[in-house]
Design a protein around this nucleic acid. Structure first.
Lengths: 204, 204, 204, 204
DNA sequence: TATGAATGAGACTTCATTCAT
DNA sequence: TATGAATGAAGTCTCATTCAT
């Protein structure tokens, strides 16, 4: 039961697939190490393919970066989702989700470096999936959350704390745990004041 | 308030100072517009000085960026501090401080782009001053804060929310207000659980 | 009219021939549109064959270009020849030949781009055929031509005017007609002066 | 009485001028040898300047080519003009002009390679100057020319013959002289038939 | 000392040709 | 044998930094 492929897709790409994977893998590594400023040749070198091959698969450097971003994002989001699944109760699910997500965040430099992009990229299905997961968690814990907390709030909180993780990862690992606790407490139902109204999107 | 200069400094600093100021001013502008990827020539051009002069004052591009960063940072922090000063009560002071700081954050692209640098730069006095301000606010509102909240927590919260501001500034301005409210509520004294222990800084 | 093939040629040429024809056809199209700078892949794509097949038939890009050039050249020359055939008198034949040839010239980009090549290529039978045609026309109109006019003169005149056609095709179509008239008048017998001596070909 | 320079032009460019000249000189050489397909680095190398310098003076490769084209064109046109000046009578002037122009034509590969560009480039003052020269020659020899011959005709004839020169320069030098004679004879007044009407420019 | 021209290592990308499948 | 993926040497252009004037 392999992943369904379009019937009309061309066959015969065993090595092409292997190469593409090697490129993405190498790119993931290199981007994590050096950020988006890397020389494309370094990626080609580590992939063990020539420049032409790399550019056959990814006509622009940015195409490659996007691909890595999406994949990295998906993996990251999925691991966080898994952490939520095994939880005992809805609140533990939410908490576990954040903990897992944030724990892995610092390792995903591409995500970090491009979150502004990620955030506003409508093509990036990953973020939609993440939204769905969060929405589920929110719905499950609705009784425990203060009224008015939206999925967007929870998503933005995640990203916001992610930044804190990144900053403190080197010098104060786990310090972000305290912020997380504070934020989660702030999300609880026992806060009487409603949240301010979120302004709607400016344009488009 | 001027920076102390060595007594035995050579004369003829008049135009040198004027140049340096022009450079920093132009750099502030340009960096805000285009980020750190700008061509140094653009800065020289807008300053009205030659490349040689620019490099006499700032031997590396990064030196200039740092300088702008410090100054920008100071201005930003100061405006937030002022917002706290006029407040009616300690809690309003803390709230006002965050609001002012975050409102201006998105406009300070250099700060945003370099906060990781800022954060860990021991030479950057600006962050120390900011710490002092926050420490004062924390001390003033100590009774209202849950036990164990440190100045570092408050500082990290600021940076963390700053990131949220940056991400939502274009498409959802003021959405960050909701996160701020949530976090501030989480900081309140009426939460029974103590915060987890912050791990100590890793030895370099 | 088909090109003679060696008797002992291997069988199974059916699809090979079909492929070769498809390649040449596509190449003719593409070269006309984009000139010799086209990517070989574009030709392969339009031919519906793979790169390997293309290179099996034409080991170098230039081989393919040459082939197209020859074929294009032949067609062009033949159409001009036909125009001469139906003429009432020898002079009209000559005139009609030039008019037809020049009218079609601008559409034959490969010829235009490679005439220097064409001109000096001893392998290019096309130019020989063209010479033969012109020679016939010249012989037929010998009485009307000034003494000393050679076939080479007439051929060079054709190419020379062809260049004029190319230059004016876009902005001043048919302006070349005036040049043609001038030249043809200059070729007439009623000019007393003999032509200057043409230097012999330099030994390679 | 040096060439007037704008008063507000910046001074201090002794070496810059020297470099620019060196670049243009080298480019002229290289372009004559290898055509416009040369590697820009080759030009830089021969100029004795770095890539940066070359690109400071000519931000795009085409800018450099254009510059060479213009200069080459001007020199060429000027030498032809000079040949006309010393002539005994108007017809000799016209003849001498063509002879000189065509004699030098083959050496100007950039012109040849780009004449289509040259021809339609309204910024290229060179072609305007050439038009003026030809117009003068035409006016001077008006009595000797068949009625209706325009400056544009004479210009196009020049370019057209230029192409013939280029083609025969290697293998049959001076063969073009015969074509020139033919054409000039065709231009003479003693041809009764008027020339066909030149169609006006299509657009713009 | 101030100027801005010069430097040149590299960045991204293309494409004729080869070769594994 | 046909396919089209792989190759990698070029090619154009940028920009932080140095240096002659």
């Amino acid at each position: 039961m392999a992943v369904a492929e379009p019937e009309n897709a061309p066959r015969r790409r065993a090595d092409a697939i292997r190469n593409q994977e090697a490129i993405v893998e190498a790119a993931t590594e290199v981007l994590a190490e050096q950020g988006t400023a890397v020389d494309v040749r370094e990626i080609a070198r580590r992939s063990g393919v020539g420049m032409g091959t790399l550019y056959r698969h990814f006509p622009k450097k940015e195409d490659l970066i996007r691909t890595v971003l999406r994949q990295d994002f998906s993996k990251w989001a999925e691991s966080a989702r898994q952490a939520a699944i095994g939880a005992e109760d809805p609140w533990a699910a939410l908490t576990g989700f954040y903990e897992q997500a944030l724990t892995g965040y610092a390792r995903h430099r591409v995500i970090v470096e491009n979150f502004a992009l990620t955030w506003s990229d409508p093509d990036l299905e990953g973020i939609q999936q993440l939204r769905l997961v969060i929405e589920e968690l929110r719905a499950g814990a609705a009784d425990l959350l203060r009224p008015g907390v939206t999925t967007e709030d929870l998503l933005l909180l995640l990203v916001s704390l992610g930044h804190a993780v990144q900053l403190t990862d080197e010098c104060r690992p786990l310090m972000w745990n305290r912020l997380l606790r504070i934020s989660l407490d702030g999300l609880r139902a026992d806060h009487g004041e409603p949240l301010p109204v979120a302004h709607r999107s400016r344009s488009k």
